[in-house]
Design a protein around this nucleic acid. Structure first.
Length: 852
RNA sequence: GCCCGGGUGGUGAAAUGGCAGACACAUCAGACUUAAAAUCUGAAGGCGAAAGCCGUGCGGGUUCGAGUCCCGCCCCGGGCACCA
């Protein structure tokens, strides 16, 4: 019988389903537990793309391998199903998002199942299921009760054309991701989560995590901790002070002006009548600017003088107060002291507006040379120096003298001086902002909140959750900034059963990220209707041991989920500080595309591939192959269904793992699938179409057998799947030539292959006489004794040039190796008459003779 | 501008400081076949008839020995971006 992958794969998928082979029902087993998680997908209408199975295959191999090694494995899958596409589709067609979502989930599930992943489907979750989002709402109430959720008037991305607010991630270069409509900043009342309260811990606990350094670094940058000081400046002639935040208190002596953000509350108070018109005009211009215009690449400084002056607390200097949009209202205190000599932005501004530049740091000459900065120019106020150096001209008559000190010491001394006089203190600032948590959408979790006519905010009682979405026929946003839920009629109204007071339900919904903030906890206890997760089960399974997904969630989902988890931890509801112990980002899979001479990408269907070189069908122009992100417009999207149909799930899995290291970006190449398909066909022939013998494995192959066990074990353990597969190919290249296949080798090979190509392995295992699934067959152990070799070829070099190859035992000491090497005729010949300076011998590897 | 990755044959890639290119894809040659497909066997980094020489983005350095370590650049991918 030939390798009929289609029949085999159907057979074993049905078997696994019927036998619930991968059900991790034992929540308290004394086996070692292992929780392996995939980032659950948004079930889009387009179906699975080849990027999904990459991560899923990796985790599946690891889980199957660990089960064979006796671990109790939790490996679940679910659906992150709230989201804009289903809602947009509803607006266009009137189809209820729940209908679209159910259909898409069915497609995704069929596709995922067709790849033979060993998920415990009894634990499937769906964020749009009221039984699930009941607990999303419940967790929100816990946040609210702790004061971590509040309503605030905040600037949001408002898209007039779509009639809705958009998340930052839905705005690309100042336009909406969908429809490409302009987006403006506008203040609106929104729900906000106080993630900033956890900034310090979100930062500190990163150190404990086994995550890619890049992702950790991205989170650190996003949180953006900076240490500095708040310093109070008096305003000349007014009984007012302005507090500024600075990371460089050591440069206070060099402040030559101050800048407030245009929105600063003191602007109107301090502006002099003469400057009023100019300031008003500038405020108007800033307000009308989009974020892109304000913060974009065009760093040309703008601003207006308020006419007021501040008093520098260290030297009593009167410095002019300006307003400028390079100072942000949302960071620090919205006000800065400007030290143009030692801050590039301040320098640009000062140059543009003719403000003096006062150098108070003598640059470190070595550092300045490295940065190609001219120290003389800095001292003359003609250039800006932001690096280290020693303070100059920095002393006053009131006991502060930092002259001669380096930046770090000067900072500390200045802060102490300020603190002693009550005009400054050490502070820490974060770039991280509180999380804008409401959306004007239909297809999301409704807030379990009622806003009473009196303005009082009430929670929906926990025993009345879930608060389900109202049925609507029109999903269009109201257009006035309110969610489609504002059209929900009776659903909106609330009457207090006791007092008769009237209220209205919150019409916003939660963002897509809400459901994914805690789904990994629900898998542990998915059907519990008493609490979101049983604490005992949580203790057993958490934390997630391995989490695999794309890097695009580096600072979104992965930060949000850590935040929620810490809130739950503080409430005593979960037992670990962090949810995801180890994280791996799988690399993107690129598609094949073609570029013409000018570098324009050509859609695949316009390319003629029949010749030796790809050419443009229309003109015959030669094209070059170029890997690019798969996209509909380039028509280079590979559909996993096609691959499974043509080559089978096992080939699909194997190919995606054989392409290269999991973390790397790799281009898809259908020819490569044929390569692994051939490998599987040859494996089939070796096991199924070669007589099986009970004779021992030929002595000359024992070493290969055991090094293969060792290499595949090591590489599977460390997720180096590509090299594990190579090793199996090497095994096959030799064992595949045998006239009869020794049973021992056949059984070992089948088990090594099982995590990678589970369907074919099950079929082979059954053929070899086993009644039970291979899923729990014990993983083979390599025997050191069989891996030893009596002799290896040792390269003998003379001054680094290969001279001879001599067989010797790898056990020989360096001295013995040297003796053997020098005894060799060609070596002796080569060193004759020369003086041996040094001999380096590395057992099992090399002998290098340095001779003159 | 700043912060992460990364640059190795025609292609995907491999290589605890120890013979660069394992394993594959594509290519070429051969076998089987009426033929093709499939399959099998073999060749193959570049230059060279060969001996040999040159080869891991570029330039230096450390070392008996560098793809691997150090210093300085260049290029590509990703993230952040007026954060005081």
């Amino acid at each position: 019988m030939d390798y009929d992958f289609s029949a085999i794969e159907k057979k074993w998928q049905a078997y696994w389903d019927a036998h619930e082979t991968f059900k991790a029902s034992d929540d308290f087993s004394n086996k070692n537990k292992l929780y392996v998680l995939d980032m659950f997908p948004y079930p889009s209408g387009a179906g699975l793309h080849v990027g999904h199975p990459e991560g899923y295959t990796a985790t599946d191999i690891f889980c199957r391998y660990k089960r064979m090694n006796g671990f109790n494995v939790l490996h679940p899958m679910g659906w992150d199903a709230f989201g804009l596409p289903a809602e947009q589709y509803a607006i266009e067609t009137g189809t209820h998002p729940s209908v679209t979502t159910a259909k898409n989930i069915a497609t995704f599930k069929r596709q995922i199942k067709s790849l033979g992943f060993s998920y415990d489907w009894s634990r499937e979750v769906n964020t749009t299921d009221p039984k699930y989002f009941r607990w999303t709402q419940w967790i929100f109430l816990q946040l609210y009760k702790k004061g971590l959720a509040y309503i605030a008037e905040v600037p949001v991305n408002w898209c007039p054309a779509l009639g809705t607010v958009l998340a930052n991630e839905e705005v690309i270069d100042g336009r909406s991701e969908r429809g490409n409509h302009p987006v403006i900043r506008r203040p609106m009342k929104q729900w906000v989560l106080k993630i900033t309260a956890y900034a310090e811990r979100l930062l500190a606990d990163l150190d404990e995590l086994d995550w890619p350094e890049g992702i950790k670094e991205m989170q650190r940058n996003w949180i953006g901790r900076s240490e500095g000081a708040e310093v109070k400046f008096r305003i000349d002639g007014l009984d007012k002070t302005v507090t500024v935040f600075t990371t460089r208190p050591d440069t206070l002596f060099g402040a030559t002006y101050m800048v407030l953000c245009p929105e600063h509350e003191l602007v109107d108070v301090i502006t002099t009548p003469a400057q009023k018109a100019a300031v008003e005009e500038y405020k108007k211009i800033t307000a009308s600017k989009s974020d892109l215009e304000r913060t974009g690449l065009n760093n040309e400084k703008t601003g207006a003088f308020t006419g007021a002056y501040a008093i520098d607390p260290v030297n009593g200097n009167k410095i002019p107060i300006w307003i400028s949009d390079y100072v942000l209202s949302t960071y620090g205190t919205g006000a800065i002291m400007a030290v143009p000599a030692h801050d590039t932005r301040d320098f640009d501004f000062a140059v543009k507006f003719g403000i003096p530049v006062k150098c108070i740091i003598n640059p470190d000459p070595a550092e300045a040379a490295k940065e190609k900065i001219d120290c003389e120019a800095v001292l003359a106020g003609k250039a800006c120096w932001t690096g280290d150096g020693v303070s100059i001209n920095s002393a006053n008559d009131d006991g502060l003298d930092i002259n001669g000190l380096h930046v770090q010491e000067a900072k500390a001394k200045t802060i102490d001086w300020l603190a002693a006089r009550g005009i400054g203190k050490r502070t820490v600032n974060y770039k991280l902002r509180d999380w804008l948590f409401s959306r004007q959408r239909y297809w999301g979790e409704p807030f379990p909140i009622i806003i009473m006519d009196s303005g009082e905010i009430r929670m929906v009682p926990e025993d009345q959750l879930p608060l389900t979405l109202p049925e609507l026929s029109d999903f269009k946003p109201s257009g006035n900034g309110e969610s489609p839920l504002a059209n929900a009629g009776a659903w909106l109204d609330y009457v207090d059963p006791v007092t008769g007071e009237h209220g209205r339900r919150e019409t916003n919904t939660m963002p897509q990220w809400a459901g994914s903030c805690w789904y990994y906890l629900r898998y542990i206890d998915p059907h519990n209707d008493k609490c979101f997760v049983d604490p005992e089960k949580e203790k057993y399974w958490m934390p997630v041991d391995l989490y695999v997904g794309g890097a695009e969630h580096a600072v979104l989902h992965l930060l949000y989920a850590r935040f929620w988890h810490k809130v739950l931890y503080d409430a005593g509801l979960v037992s670990t500080k962090e949810p995801f112990h180890r994280l791996i980002n799988q690399g993107m899979i690129l598609g094949t595309s073609y570029k013409d001479k000018r570098g324009v990408l050509i859609p695949t269907d316009q390319v003629d591939l029949s010749g030796a070189e790809p050419v443009l069908k229309a003109t015959g122009e030669k094209l070059t192959e170029f890997p690019a992100k798969m996209s509909k417009s380039l028509r280079n999207v590979v559909n996993p269904d096609d691959v499974v149909r043509d080559y089978g799930a096992d080939s699909m899995r194997l190919y995606e793992m054989f392409m290269g290291p999991l973390k790397e970006t790799k281009p898809w190449n259908t020819r490569g699938v044929e390569g692994v398909f051939r490998f599987l066909k040859r494996s089939w022939r070796m096991i199924m179409q070669t007589p099986v013998t009970d004779d021992p494995v030929p002595a000359n192959l024992m070493r290969l057998l055991h090094t293969t066990i060792q290499k595949v074990t090591e590489d599977t353990e460390t997720l180096c799947f590509n090299t594990a597969i190579s090793q199996m190919m090497i095994f096959l290249n030799d064992f595949g030539k045998l006239e009869a296949m020794p049973r021992e080798a056949a059984e070992i090979y089948t088990r090594l292959l099982a995590p990678y190509a589970p369907h074919i392995a099950e079929e082979m295992w059954e053929y070899l006489g086993h009644k039970d699934s291979i899923a729990y067959a014990p993983w083979p152990k390599a025997d050191e004794a069989h891996m030893k070799v009596r002799e290896v070829e040792i390269l003998v070099q003379i001054c680094g040039k290969p001279k001879a190859r001599i067989m010797m035992s790898p056990e020989l000491s360096p001295a013995e190796m040297e003796k053997v090497a020098l005894a060799d005729a060609s070596v002796a010949d080569a060193v004759a008459g020369k003086k041996i300076v040094k001999v380096i011998a590395v057992p099992g590897r090399i002998v290098n003779i340095v001779a003159k």
